[in-house]
Simulated assay, not measured.
Amino acid sequence: MSPLPVETWLRRGLLASFRWPVKFCASTTIVAWILSLITGNVSQVDRVWTFLPTIYTAYFSLLPLWPKDAPLPLWPYAPEAIHPDIKARYSPRALLMLALVVVWMLRLSYNTWRRGLFNLHDEDYRWRIVRNKIPAWLFQVFNLVFIAIIQNIILLLLGIPAHIAAFQQPTRLSTSDYILGTLALIDIVLEFVADNQQYSFQTYKHTGVHEANEWPGARINWTPRDAQRGFVTRGLWAWSRHPNFLCEQTFWVIITLFPLLAPESPNLPSLPLGSMTPLWPLAPALVLCTLFFSSTRFTESISLSKYSDAYRAYQQRVAMFVPFLTPVWGLLLQVRGKKEQVDEMLFGQGEKGKRE
């Protein structure tokens, strides 16, 4: 029996509302992989990471906007098989989620731009390290399976909460929507502050000059002692080793919770995999958190190789993500009689430790 054409498989094997997103995801995966082979640079997905979750969220949130047939290849469309009520009315919850994801995109795009990652010649330093650690053939397998395919699937998953919200069809926003929306905005602001503090520190570390017109929250008086230490330990980074990663994960947890905490039923049986487990709507947050935890462990192994004793002390003193645990680690060091020594190594600016 000959295999089904892709279009036929999409029609038979997927909900109508997922046909275009899956087709678009497959296309971006193939393009990213081919470009990585042509250029030798595997950061192609990194360059579009800031846009793809917004595209998927926008597709599901704006289903009434799309035509029933695509006028151009990869143009978004809403097949006739989608329930007419879904194509007739916008979900205010999905629109709120889209607005928050757009704000998230603007923050991440700005940070990506100033770090130079939109430059087609730049590549994430972690990919270079992985390339040097394993055989060339194995790295190409890793490039195809993880960097191209799995990462694009994760980005598609981040649109699922908006899909659920679009099918809920609330008439107005609920109390949970207002609370989660406020928390999401606070989270984005904190991530922006963490990014700015890191960027300010790296600028001072490499130039010895404080950035002019620093963003509020990043106006820290860095010292030669900070630059000599090699990694940022002040501001939000005194409470979490990765406050930006914490906020990134928290943002998508909040987005995932929007439809799940709403008074309307998530209507799971009508969605993909609904018959398998009622926990599947948590997949976007769980998969992203798993990715960030693994990535952070790898990033920290690199930092340990560069900064050795100082970074090991940082791991003992400051929590990886959750800032509320940092005082606990400090108390444990105090019991062991090492807190003063560690604080001086990490936060000290002179004879006595100083922490901002």
Rank of each mutant, 00 (worst) to 15 (best):
residue 11 R to S: 14
residue 11 R to Q: 15
residue 11 R to T: 14
residue 11 R to K: 13
residue 11 R to L: 15
residue 11 R to C: 13
residue 12 R to N: 09
residue 12 R to F: 03
residue 13 G to Y: 04
residue 13 G to N: 12
residue 13 G to W: 11
residue 14 L to E: 02
residue 14 L to S: 13
residue 14 L to R: 03
residue 15 L to D: 08
residue 15 L to Y: 09
residue 15 L to A: 11
residue 15 L to T: 07
residue 16 A to F: 09
residue 16 A to R: 08
residue 17 S to G: 10
residue 18 F to R: 02
residue 18 F to N: 07
residue 18 F to W: 14
residue 18 F to G: 00
residue 19 R to D: 01
residue 19 R to K: 03
residue 19 R to F: 13
residue 19 R to T: 01
residue 19 R to G: 00
residue 19 R to E: 09
residue 20 W to C: 07
residue 20 W to G: 06
residue 20 W to A: 08
residue 21 P to F: 15
residue 21 P to T: 11
residue 21 P to M: 09
residue 22 V to Q: 04
residue 22 V to S: 02
residue 23 K to F: 05
residue 23 K to M: 06
residue 23 K to N: 06
residue 24 F to H: 04
residue 24 F to C: 06
residue 24 F to T: 08
residue 25 C to D: 05
residue 25 C to Y: 05
residue 25 C to T: 13
residue 25 C to F: 07
residue 26 A to D: 05
residue 26 A to F: 11
residue 26 A to G: 15
residue 26 A to N: 07
residue 26 A to E: 04
residue 26 A to L: 15
residue 27 S to W: 14
residue 27 S to R: 01
residue 27 S to P: 00
residue 28 T to L: 11
residue 28 T to E: 04
residue 28 T to Q: 06
residue 28 T to F: 08
residue 28 T to R: 03
residue 29 T to P: 07
residue 29 T to K: 08
residue 29 T to N: 07
residue 29 T to Y: 04
residue 30 I to L: 15
residue 30 I to Q: 05
residue 30 I to C: 13
residue 31 V to F: 08
residue 32 A to E: 06
residue 32 A to K: 02
residue 33 W to D: 04
residue 33 W to C: 01
residue 33 W to V: 00
residue 33 W to F: 13
residue 34 I to R: 03
residue 34 I to M: 03
residue 34 I to A: 13
residue 34 I to F: 14
residue 35 L to H: 02
residue 35 L to D: 01
residue 36 S to E: 00
residue 36 S to C: 01
residue 36 S to W: 04
residue 36 S to N: 04
residue 37 L to K: 13
residue 38 I to M: 05
residue 38 I to F: 05
residue 38 I to G: 00
residue 38 I to L: 14
residue 39 T to D: 04
residue 39 T to C: 05
residue 39 T to P: 07
residue 39 T to N: 02
residue 40 G to Q: 08
residue 40 G to I: 03
residue 41 N to W: 03
residue 41 N to A: 05
residue 41 N to T: 05
residue 42 V to Q: 07
residue 42 V to L: 01
residue 42 V to A: 10
residue 43 S to R: 11
residue 43 S to T: 15
residue 45 V to I: 15
residue 45 V to G: 10
residue 45 V to M: 07
residue 45 V to H: 12
residue 45 V to A: 07
residue 46 D to C: 08
residue 46 D to V: 10
residue 46 D to T: 10
residue 47 R to C: 02
residue 48 V to E: 02
residue 48 V to Y: 07
residue 49 W to S: 02
residue 49 W to P: 00
residue 49 W to E: 10
residue 49 W to R: 09
residue 50 T to E: 02
residue 50 T to L: 03
residue 50 T to M: 04
residue 50 T to G: 09
residue 50 T to H: 05
residue 51 F to R: 05
residue 51 F to K: 01
residue 51 F to E: 12
residue 51 F to H: 12
residue 52 L to N: 01
residue 52 L to K: 05
